[in-house]
């Protein structure tokens, strides 16, 4: 049974190379976590008293300003950071996707990159080999897969990366907003694969600035603000709180139809509207 639990967790980053003098005044801004200066080494409180409990079937959308702690929270939930105070427990195989390109080597062929990227995402070599055909078909790269990655255009790289990411079977899928930044036309094609992927995975946590995407993939939401959880609940509530208006107001009927048509659990979400 997959689950992610975090109890009263704090994530404090020591900043060893910052000059303490220049940080004498406590910097409290809208952007970034709180910087504490009592200690000899300045510390950035990136996450403050976080408690989250996720179980199988949860699809969480993460919203918040830049520097609100979204990525740090994702790293906490994937087990990359262990809380400095408080505790956390992650049960299940995590596939974190912060950067589509991590683990890609420009000098080796697309085919080899698919395998490596798969290993990074917790798959075995055998599993990846059995998926090669599927990925080749989806990416439409054909014979190009034998060429070194450096010969690829940016778009082709994104195709490859998305092809690999959407082919895996993660128990816990952690997606950072970067994935929304790819070429819109191709994303349209990747959309159904992405929805499939999310349906295959036990838990999804997805940070994004795109309401559409969030509605398509998620059913609940967390609003991060200055390293704290400002609001936690159904996605619509959270987005209403975050944006200050109902997110469905500005959306065309067509979009709403497509979103709710995508997945049964999402039909339920829009059914409540």
């Amino acid at each position: 049974m997959v689950s992610v639990d975090v109890w009263n967790a704090f994530v404090d980053f020591p900043i060893f190379d910052a000059k303490t003098r220049s940080l004498k005044k406590q910097v409290l801004g809208k952007v970034g976590g709180k910087i504490a200066t009592e200690a000899r080494v300045p510390i950035i409180e990136a996450l403050h008293d976080i408690s989250v409990s996720l179980k199988d079937g949860d699809r969480v959308g993460l919203v918040g300003h830049n520097g609100a702690g979204k990525s740090t929270l994702l790293r906490l939930l994937s087990g990359i950071y262990e809380p400095t105070r408080g505790s956390s427990r992650v049960v299940g195989r995590v596939a974190p996707v912060f950067d589509l390109g991590i683990g890609m080597d420009p000098e080796i062929s697309g085919m080899e990159n698919i395998i490596i990227r798969g290993l990074f995402l917790g798959m075995t070599r055998k599993q990846m080999e059995s998926r090669l055909d599927d990925i080749a078909e989806f990416t439409e790269l054909g014979d190009y897969l034998q060429m070194p990655l450096r010969t690829y255009s940016t778009g082709m790289r994104v195709r490859l990366a998305l092809g690999v990411v959407t082919s895996i079977d993660p128990e816990i899928l952690i997606l950072d907003e970067g994935i929304g930044a790819v070429d819109a036309a191709f994303l349209e094609k990747a959309r159904s694969r992405l929805v499939d992927l999310v349906r295959r995975s036990g838990i999804l946590v997805f940070a994004s600035h795109s309401d559409e995407f969030l509605f398509e993939l998620c059913n609940s939401g967390i609003w991060m603000d200055e390293g704290k959880i400002r609001q936690q609940g159904s996605l619509r509530e959270v987005l209403t709180g975050y944006k200050g208006k109902d997110p469905f107001e500005g959306m065309s009927q067509e979009t709403i139809d497509r979103i709710s048509g995508g997945a049964p659990e999402l039909a339920r979400v829009s059914g409540e509207l």
């Binding site: 087990g79 912060f98 991590i102």
Partner: peptide, 8 residues
């Protein structure tokens, strides 16, 4: 560093 910050 890159890998450590990207995967558990």
């Amino acid at each position: 560093e890159g890998m450590i910050k990207q995967m558990p």
